[in-house]
Design a binder for these strands. Structure first.
Lengths: 225, 225
DNA sequence: AAAATTTTTAAGTCTTTTTTAAGCTTGACA
DNA sequence: TGTCAAGCTTAAAAAAGACTTAAAAATTTT
């Protein structure tokens, strides 16, 4: 679950990041409207927390522009308590909810939960692919009687591979989706995990392969037997 | 079992909280319709007690909006005796039951019981899981002749583990369900209780294990012998 | 108010995951 | 056929996450 925080007050931005990180959200922070818009346009976030008073482009403009460009990521607007916001303007510009500063961490978390729950996140539970079965709710990868446990990153990566079954997924993509937008993981990290996954696939005697396409990425390939 | 109270009269809100807390319900109290709606949307409550005359958004609006957003938590409406409510309007807006103020605590508790019973939430009294038996009404955990008493939190957690037998339940989930929505319990609290539970499971010589899946949570695992 | 029980906290230990880095493979192509 | 870049694998170091306790604090019971 990835969250973008657009907030220029460094201290608040830091606090937000900490609160959210503690709850296992992946958090990216940017400090002005231009970056906010750029990052938001990537479409990879599940929620955007957007302060109204930020440099270059204010929160309303950013929200409006995002909506205009068909980004429907839920937006939670932040506004100072005294500058009582024109609520309507906030919500009209495309925000889904707003919150006045200062606020309690619980309130923030509650609102985020409300925003994310609303859009029925489909938790894929169990999938068959080729000759194996992957149960995402228990992280068990199995074929026939054999089964192995996948750890967090392994299963995230396998989920991605399965979701992209018919296309090649790049290492870059894997990094941003699994490690986060601005992590400093390199391609070797992905390679290492792919290697772990291959070993486990081999262990359960699956004939499905993780094919590597030079310079492009990976693809899961059925080899039905 | 979690209950949300939406009531702006501080004194009554306080009384409700006390009555309910004594019965071991987890209670959150908010004082106006906006917060009521926000909290209600979280979907974590088993019952919402909703006064009609509250600030910002009245009870009808809140109930209506909750239903519109597919939250089907049972709602118990509160209304002053003299402002004889348009009962129909209450029930039409999505409420499941209503009660006029003032009321006797027993009546409140009875209605809550009725509401929770209605949704077939099987109040499991006694369960067998794997090789042990857990009697929720006496909090006795036993296998064969051996048996131990579980305290409140231990049994709540064990109930959760049993209810989620086939999936991993996260520490966060356990915290919100057992400690409550805005508690400041941390993951170590859960870990400590899991440790207590393991010790008791071991004490009765059960071969059922509480498996821990890093970064994900816990799962109860049968090891039938 | 004492005693008993439950719950929280915190520190030290242990375990698993994640990163890193070095050496090894492979295949394209000059 | 030798070179090179991209990718693979692996061990071991580092970091993160969990576990277990004992003791303190809070709560409930007597």
């Amino acid at each position: 679950m990835q969250i973008l925080v657009v907030e220029d007050e460094k201290r608040l931005a830091q606090a937000l990041k900490q609160i959210l990180t503690e709850q296992k959200y992946m958090v990216d922070v940017v400090y002005d409207g231009n970056d906010g818009l750029d990052y938001g346009l990537s479409g990879i976030y599940d929620v955007i927390i957007l302060d109204i008073m930020i440099p270059f482009k204010d929160g309303f403009q950013v929200a409006y522009e995002l909506r205009r460009q068909k980004i429907d990521t839920p937006i939670l607007m932040l506004t100072a308590k005294d500058t009582i916001p024109d609520k309507v303007s906030g919500l009209n510009s495309g925000a889904d909810d707003y919150m006045t500063k200062p606020f309690a961490p619980e309130e923030l978390l509650a609102r985020i939960k409300a925003l994310t729950r609303r859009r029925g996140e489909v938790m894929l539970d169990e999938t068959d692919f080729g000759d194996f079965n992957f149960n995402a709710s228990t992280c068990e990868l199995s074929k026939g009687a054999k089964s192995v446990h996948l750890n967090y990153k392994e299963s995230e990566i396998l989920k991605l591979l399965i979701a992209n079954r018919d296309t090649i997924i790049s290492k870059e993509d894997i990094i941003t989706k699994v490690w986060g937008y601005d992590s400093d993981a390199g391609s070797n990290n992905v390679e290492a995990y792919i290697s772990f996954l291959r070993r486990k696939l081999h262990f359960i005697q699956s004939s499905t392969e993780i094919k590597s396409i030079k310079k492009m990425g990976y693809r899961l390939e059925r080899n039905d037997d």
